[in-house]
Design a protein around this nucleic acid. Structure first.
Lengths: 207, 207
DNA sequence: CGTCCTCCTGACCATTTGGTCAATATTCTC
DNA sequence: GAGAATATTGACCAAATGGTCAGGAGGACG
């Protein structure tokens, strides 16, 4: 089974089942911490069966990463030059926060990969991701130059958005330990905070 | 060797050597990814010798975490009610950023532990850390109530500071991949950005 | 110099884990 | 429903890994 494109419906279903189980296990345990047995059990399949669909543990992991990275960047892609600059960026922040709420496993998966030096997706980061960021940073610079937004380094602005929004997925344990109620009730508070925060920081008036 | 306090100078030296090597390996590979052999080699000691000084891999890891957490919180502790509110918070941001620059291994160690649900320091987070944060959040609230700083949720404000500053240590690989020059030259840019960013967001005038 | 205590190591062990394979079961196609 | 293609599994393997242990070095101290 060195196949790339699934040919039968069983293949499609099982590959999806495996990838979903792998996402759960890898995001919770990291690459090294996850075991094929765990993934197999989560998926409800036998270990040799996993290896019938994927060549190796690494193959599962790599396919996960590259499949998800694309989705992960959608919110940034949607940044639109035509809209109001401040609204656009605040909108991006909200979309990214929504993603942390809806896809915390994906967020943690990337977080762990990158913390460890991104050994398996460095290429994707230096290629597509970097190009996208360069593109959007140029857009922000245009907004700055026309005085429609505060003059703040666009790259570091984007980093700050990644950091503040992904924090709620990646460090959810810590957030919940400090904010009394469990659950993601505080996600709404986070949205309120970040919205006001970025609106204040970006407003071109003042100072 | 179930000793807690080192008694001889050899003990003290070797325990330090081991903890330093462990910090390097654990922060780069995570708890599960790190091996005793790696730590032993990094420390220049034999594996059985490690286990002469520490009861187990877990024991090394736990001692590392609890030793470092205290230092990690110093910047927040220094937040001073007597100073100018905006300057105090910006100062906190700068101290925290400095820590990400000087102690990236420690930052990554905590990051990985918390991403995985903080299984081994949850107690410390729910106890001392939470108390400290509650304390400082109350201080920020006082500043808000007297109109000396913008009205922003103090807990989420603190989270945003952790997120934005630690980002430069934890996701350093990504930052370097997007910002052309390697090295930590961009740490200065980060300081400039964060300083301006928080100053704008916190200024009590406007809006 | 002898002896006690600390320090260190080679050899070894049990378990875990990624991965293989031949054989069997299931599904698909005509 | 026969036969080919696809799917699944139990049994097994080699390497890695956390940890043990008996015994040997090495230093401190009388």
């Amino acid at each position: 089974m060195n196949v790339e494109r699934p040919r039968t419906r069983i293949q499609k279903k099982n590959r999806e089942t495996i990838l979903d189980a792998a996402l759960a296990v890898f995001s919770a345990e990291g690459f090294r911490g996850a075991t094929l047995d765990q993934i197999a059990e989560t998926a409800g399949l036998s270990k040799p069966n996993l290896l019938y669909y994927f060549a190796s543990k690494e193959a599962i992991y790599s396919e996960l990463l590259s499949t998800l990275l694309d989705t992960w960047l959608d919110p940034l892609r949607a940044l639109d030059e035509a809209g109001d600059p401040v609204d656009e960026i605040v909108g991006y922040v909200m979309r990214k926060l929504q993603m942390s709420r809806d896809m915390p496993r994906e967020s943690r998966l990337f977080a762990q990969e990158i913390v460890q030096g991104a050994p398996r997706i460095l290429e994707q980061i230096e290629g597509p991701l970097r190009r996208l960021v360069d593109d959007k940073a140029a857009l922000v610079t245009r907004w700055i130059d026309t005085g429609r937004i505060a003059a703040l380094d666009p790259y570091h602005l984007i980093f700050s958005i990644w950091a503040t929004t992904q924090h709620y997925a990646d460090f959810n344990t810590q957030v919940c330990s400090i904010l009394k109620p469990e659950g993601d009730a505080h996600m709404d508070d986070a949205a309120t905070f970040l919205s006001a925060f970025y609106r204040r920081a970006l407003d071109p008036r003042q100072l």
